[in-house]
Design a binder for these strands. Structure first.
Length: 276
DNA sequence: AATGGGGCCTGAGAGC
DNA sequence: TGCTCTCAGGCCCCAT
């Protein structure tokens, strides 16, 4: 579920609370969450490390420590939470708990177990296999019309599939792909081969505008099991969705009913009048 | 070679 | 009430 705005919200909260802390203990429950390396190596690598900074590339969280980086990907249902005081009751689907030197704990919960954690040292192949395959971050100020044009290249695919491709631009998921297409006035099934300079210009503006507004609203939370931040609080951007999750309801700009269908295997929403 | 579809998992909600 | 079915925000892998 979490896309760039949600991961960025968590990143900011982690940066404000974790930097300077030392990991005193690492507990892993169930091997699937730490699947790129042995649990032994994960625990040995992370235990005793001090957190220096918290960065993000696309949907990956990069918690920089002295001697390596804790890499976190929340995938669909992963959630990080910070807890004070004594351990409470058992929280279902807890796959990892990091104890900190100030008595707090960082918990990783993930019902669908798609999310993952690993600890990488500098130059680690694990980094090349994951973060290293990403395109530029979608919130990177350098993604203008020219950069988009270069990324599109000779690709012949739908605009939606292009926006979702993390090797092209990193950080956009299904919700924001739909919102960006709407903001740019472009149909999500529009072929990238037909995009002109003016389309790319509107697309570049839309990417930046939608993501920056979403970060400002601390991301999107849908339903009960949806995204929550480090302290359990939901985001607010769902109230500003123009198309996502609004199939059959009126377009906020022209009132035409929003279309919903499947594209690139994903639910897709758009206004048939405003997007061409 | 790039692209679309299936698979990985569990839970929520709809429909009967 | 309770069962079954569909769907879900991501990404890897495979066949085409």
């Amino acid at each position: 579920m979490p896309e760039l705005p949600e991961v960025e919200t968590v990143r900011r909260e982690l940066a404000a609370t974790l930097v300077g802390r030392t990991v005193t203990e690492v507990a892993v429950h169930g091997p699937r969450t730490v699947r790129r390396q042995s649990v032994r190596r994960f625990r040995a690598g992370l235990t005793g490390r001090r957190v220096l900074d918290v960065r993000r590339h696309g949907k990956y969280l990069l918690i920089g420590c002295d001697g390596g980086t804790l890499v976190v990907h929340l995938r669909m249902t992963g959630r990080l939470s910070l807890e004070d005081g004594a351990p409470g009751g058992v929280i279902p689907h807890t796959h990892a708990v990091l104890s900190l030197d100030d008595g707090r704990r960082l918990r990783f919960v993930d019902p669908r177990t798609f999310g993952e954690l690993f600890f990488a040292t500098e130059g680690d192949q694990l980094l090349a296999d994951t973060v290293g395959r990403l395109g530029p971050d979608a919130a990177d100020g350098g993604i203008g019309p020219e950069a988009l044009g270069r990324l599109v290249g000779r690709r012949r695919t739908s605009l939606k599939a292009f926006l979702l491709d993390q090797a092209m631009i990193a950080g956009i998921g299904n919700i924001y792909a739909d919102e960006i297409c709407f903001a740019a006035g472009l149909r999500p099934d529009r072929s990238t081969a037909t995009l002109g300079a003016d389309d790319l210009a509107r697309l570049a503006v839309a990417v930046r505008a939608v993501l920056s507004r979403a970060v400002g609203s601390r991301g999107t939370s849908l339903g009960d099991g949806g995204y929550r931040d480090l302290f359990g609080d939901p985001g607010g951007f769902q109230a500003e969705h123009a198309v996502y999750g609004r199939g059959g309801r009126p377009c906020p700009r022209c009132g035409t009913a929003i279309e919903k269908s499947r594209l690139a295997g994903r639910s897709t929403h758009w206004c048939p009048r405003c997007q061409g």
